[in-house]
Every structure is written in structure tokens, then in C-alpha cells.
Design a protein around this nucleic acid. Sequence first.
DNA 1: TTTTTACATATTGTCGACAATCGGAGTTAA
DNA 2: TTAACTCCGATTGTCGACAATATGTAAAAA
Lengths: 225, 225
Amino acid sequence: MLPYTPEQGTLADIATHRLAHSIVTGEIAQGQKLNEAELAERFGMGRGPLREALRHLEGMRLVKRIPNVGARVVILDHKTLSDLYAVREALEGMACRIAATQMTDAEIEQLRTLLDSHEKQIRKQGGKVYAQKEGDLDFHYQIARGSRNQMLMDLLGSEQYQLLRMCRYRTSRNAERTGPALQQHRQIVEALAQRDGELAEMLMRRHIQGAWQSIDEMIEKEEAA
Amino acid sequence: MLPYTPEQGTLADIATHRLAHSIVTGEIAQGQKLNEAELAERFGMGRGPLREALRHLEGMRLVKRIPNVGARVVILDHKTLSDLYAVREALEGMACRIAATQMTDAEIEQLRTLLDSHEKQIRKQGGKVYAQKEGDLDFHYQIARGSRNQMLMDLLGSEQYQLLRMCRYRTSRNAERTGPALQQHRQIVEALAQRDGELAEMLMRRHIQGAWQSIDEMIEKEEAA
DNA sequence: TTTTTACATATTGTCGACAATCGGAGTTAA
DNA sequence: TTAACTCCGATTGTCGACAATATGTAAAAA
């Protein structure tokens, strides 16, 4: 589910959220054509609101539209993912740097608590890997919030970063990295607690580079097979 | 004008570009209400395409929409600008770092040529400051292109960064910084030529910090008066 | 057989009208 | 005088139908 799941509001917003969910979870395949009339009927609405939803999804980079031809779900190829992670590295690094000066002690303590619960979840193991993944997103989003920068929050939060969640669903099988990731998260929190923005930024950037490296290897293994 | 100004294509796209232009140049004031019916008639189209344009502009962060209430032009207050420059620093820094490894020698040479023409324009002085400003945007965009990262190009290019152009129009009067800015640009190009991504990133980030500082002071002077 | 052209079909783009909702003017009561 | 309430006008949200455009097929020419 999306961070906030309004099955209310305008029909266009409902369509946006339902489609975004379907796309992110892979329920609608990458590259699939999105037929306006068909979707409108499935959602029980006219084509007007649905078209607005498609425009919105285009802004989220979840679909690509071509005039007079139609909309298709984006294809997360290797290059796109690589580009995404470079942007993430830049933005989340900056968020971290600012958060080190802006977050309250209480918020940093909350981060520690969040990581504790992650650790428990990992110990219990078997449990959904997805949960950890979404929890990881939570960690990153909490830091974005800590930056007090609305634009960063938008870019790293629900509106713009559904692409990342989509990627997570696609690569959710590699659970082996949760261990090192957790430790890196802890290092980052300590840097925040010491109010060392420069260090926090560096650690976050390394963390994301590591995550990309892990995903990159996995994709290449897949493509070899 | 926009980098590409299609007065063709779908009506929604035309409306998007015309409105974006009017908003960026200040022809439509910040915070002004955008009446659908009125604009639709002014542009000689129905409300459907215009609504899609508003959605698109919302994605560009040029307008803010509230359900059942309507759309207003965003207000570029101090906090918003500050947030914008932090994001710019992160993204353009990253673009610079990558460009140092990805740009061809020919492209770097082109950058030098671009800066030469900027210098001439500044010498001729009186000439439009705007031209320099847009030229500056060119410089930054060329580097974004040099990163070969489509997402960075989108975020720093025409689609997402109209906000920045809007800011430029608002603060275009302070021409005194063109001198140091040019010198910093030259330093950046040299770092690129040496293929030193780390240095190029650092210089770009400082450059943008300096630009923000300059704008920040200017705004405070304005608000004092 | 291959290429090109013309056509038929499906899909997108656009419009005008109607329904739902919000903001404000005016009224009434405390 | 102030507060809350009610109603009305204006604006947004939605729908269905029609026009414009692209895609795929089949026939005709090379």
C-alpha cells in the first residue's frame, strides 16, 4: 500500500493510486499498454479522470505517454536503475547532511528504535522480506523528513519515488544484504547523533552505492541465466 | 522561451507550455488563481485539455492544486528557494562528478567555447542580463547532459526545473555576480578536463552555494525595504 | 514474392453539458 | 456587535458523444 491510501477524493486521485499500486507491485507488467477505455470501465469511471491519472503517473515516471499513441508502463532496465541510484545517492546524501543539523534528539532516538525493530524482524528471519524492505524505505524517508526540506521530501517520498519501490519489488529476493545494511544504518544514525553532517552524508552515499552494487551483481547474474 | 517551444502537438501540451512560460516570466503573478473556464476560453480550447495541462504543471511544481477548490501559481518564498538550492547543489554536484568521467574531450572543449562567448557578452556589458542568465542555465544543462543520466537531465532540465528559471526571473537584477560565477565555471571545466570528478563535484557545490548566498542576501535586503 | 498503397478498425484527443462541491453574501439569533 | 446558519452563485468534477489520428490488414502494383 501507499504511505497514504485514499480510496476517497477525486476519481482521478483514486485511479492514480490504484494504478500506481498495480504498477509498483508488478501486477501490471512493465511495458504493458494502458488502454484508457478499458481501465476506465474497470475502475467504473469516465475517461476524463483516468486521463488525468495517466498524466499524474507520467509525472511520477511510472508510465510513458506518447501523443496520439497511448501510455505504457515504464521498463526498468539496467540503465534506468543505475541512473535512479545515482540520483538517490545525491539526494539522500544531501538529506542526511541537512538532517544532521535539523533533526531533534527525540527524532534521532526514534530512528534508533526503528532500527531495533528492524533487527528483531531480521532475527525472526523467515518473516516477510518485504516488510524489511518497506521498513528500509521508512528509515530513508524519516531522514528525508528530518531534513525539513519539502522538495527533498517530495523527491524522496511518496510522490516521486514510487520508481524505487517498483525496483524493490523487482529485486526483493536478495535478502542477504539486510545484515550489512542494518549496520550501515546504525552508523548513519550515530553520525546524525554526533551532528556530523559531512560524515552522515558520506556514510549514506556509501550505503546507497553498496545497495546498487548488490543489485547490479544480481541483475547481471539474472541476465546471464 | 522554453528550450523547445512546440506550438504544436496536443492542445494540452500547448496549454502547458504557454502557461509555463507565463508563470516563469512572471506574466502571471505568484499565488494567482487559475480559472479553468477563463483560461480555456483565452486559449481557445475546452476545459479538458486545460485540466490536463494543470496536472502537468502541478508535476512541474509550478502550480498547486487543491481538490474542489482550484489551482494557484506557486509562491516562491524564502524557504522554497532555499530548499530548491539545496536540491540543486546535490543534483548538479552529482551530475558534475559523473560528467567528469563521461563527457568527451570535444564536449569539454565546447564548454570552453560557451564560456568564451559568455565572457564576451559580459564585456559588452549593457546587453541583456537575461541572456547571461539563460546562458548560465545552458552551461549547467550541458553538464547535466554530460552525465548521460536521463533522470538527472530530466530533473535539471526543462521538465522539472522551470522553478529555477522562475527564480532567475525574479532575481535577475543582481548582475554583480556574473564575474565570479564565470571564473568558477572555468574552474569547473578545468576539473572536468582533468577528469577529476571529486573536485568537479566540490567546485560545483561551492558554486551553487555561492549563488544561493548571493540571492539570499538580496532577498533579505528586499524584505528589509 | 516483395513493396506500396488504401482502407477499416481501434484508440486517443476534444468538446459541451450536467452534477457535485465550495466560498461568500445576507440573514437571524445570541 | 458578533457568531452561526442558510442559501445562492461560481467553480470544479465527471460523463458521454464526436472528431482526429495511428495501427494493422488486405489488395494492388512492381
